[in-house]
């Protein structure tokens, strides 16, 4: 059949086109699996990873799901294991999602570790942390209280309700408020999934139902634009302090318009760099010292042998004044 043949040709062409992606395999490979592809945050991690790969003489593989779906992520990890990629790092969507593949990785002597979002009890080799969950949760609350006052009412807009790293940060925010700021009211977190319009809708509703709201925290980087726009659209610039864990490039326009008072983040490309570096150490079987400055990085990182956490450093706070000094 003519048409059948056309169809076959189309698929063949698609496969042929993909050969360009097929990789040479003489160098050791370090893979990173993000929670979702196509967002600036993980893009920056990819770039950092590529830099590190070039510098350290390994090959970097970047593969992630299109939706924040743990099964899709698992499928990707499983396929990387099948390919025999020597070290695989995952920003886990769900703390228990690695369980089925941990054994498979061990059996093939593949170093499976986490980066950016952890699965503590999974048996992973180590966890490359951007900053401690506690530090992130505490910092964003401390900075918020500085701006909104010690008796402020603060709302939280998160992304996927299933994301374990985001939930951990929210947990520390709540803990900080309970312990240090008894007069601050922290509203229950609301979840917008991955979409900016839902985040804006929820943030708008939140401001309407709480006219005395002083601040909104956008927990997922995907919710930052929505929250900022909601504050701008509601004409609440100055009255409500917006913030979130988002990169200077994402937050720049909002920091300048005043919708965001500040933004808390680390340099994701540095995190990507450190991830690949850690993968290389694991492949080479080297032990990581308690404090060291990895080749190609400008500052030292710390490693806790007991918890297996490799810490990038303290989170940075970006404001309208310093945001132009950064480009990521």
């Amino acid at each position: 059949m003519l048409k059948t043949r056309t169809l076959l040709l189309a698929v063949a062409a698609a496969l042929a086109a993909s050969t360009t992606f097929a990789a040479a395999q003489d160098k050791a490979r370090v893979a990173f699996v993000p929670q979702i592809v196509g967002i600036p945050y993980f893009d920056a991690m990819q770039q950092g990873g590529e830099q590190a790969a070039k510098k350290l003489g390994v090959e970097f593989v970047y593969q992630g799901p299109v939706d924040t779906n743990p099964v899709d992520q698992l499928q990707i990890v499983q396929n990387l294991i099948n390919q025999g990629v020597e070290a695989i790092s995952v920003s886990v969507l769900d703390a228990s999602s690695l369980a089925p593949v941990v054994e498979a990785a061990k059996a093939k002597d593949i170093k499976l570790f986490t980066s950016d979002s952890d699965a503590p009890d999974s048996g992973r080799a180590l966890y490359v942390a951007q900053a401690s969950d506690q530090g992130l949760g505490y910092t964003i609350i401390d900075e918020m209280v500085k701006r909104a006052g010690e008796d402020a009412k603060i709302g939280i807009v998160s992304g996927e309700a299933t994301a374990s790293n985001l939930n951990a940060w929210i947990g520390y925010m709540q803990e900080r408020v309970k312990e240090k700021y008894p007069n601050v009211t922290l509203l229950d977190p609301q979840f917008a999934g991955g979409s900016a319009e839902r985040a804006a809708q929820i943030a708008g509703d939140m401001m309407a139902s709480n006219p005395d709201l002083k601040g909104i925290i956008a927990v997922a980087s995907t919710t930052c634009p929505g929250v900022a726009q909601a504050i701008e659209t509601a004409g609440k610039i100055g009255a409500v302090v917006g913030t979130g864990y988002c990169s200077p490039n994402t937050a720049r326009a909002y920091l300048k318009s005043g919708a965001f008072g500040y933004s808390v983040l680390w340099d994701p490309s540095e995190l990507g760099y450190l991830t690949v570096w850690a993968g290389k150490q694991l492949i080479d079987g080297k032990t990581i010292p308690a404090e060291t400055t990895p080749e190609g990085m400008s500052h030292p990182v710390t490693y806790d042998d007991k918890t297996g956490i490799l810490l990038l450093g303290d989170p940075a706070v970006f404001t309208a004044d310093n945001v132009d000094d950064f480009n990521f």
């Binding site: 979702i36 592809v37 196509g38 967002i39 939706d67 999934g193 991955g194 979409s195 900016a196 319009e197 804006a200 995907t222 634009p225 929505g226 726009q229 659209t233 326009a253």
Partner: peptide, 16 residues
């Protein structure tokens, strides 16, 4: 209208 309001396009736009 979407652009006028949000001034942002993410990859997950319009999914649901």
């Amino acid at each position: 209208f979407y652009i006028a309001t949000y001034r942002n396009v993410a990859m997950t736009i319009g999914g649901t």
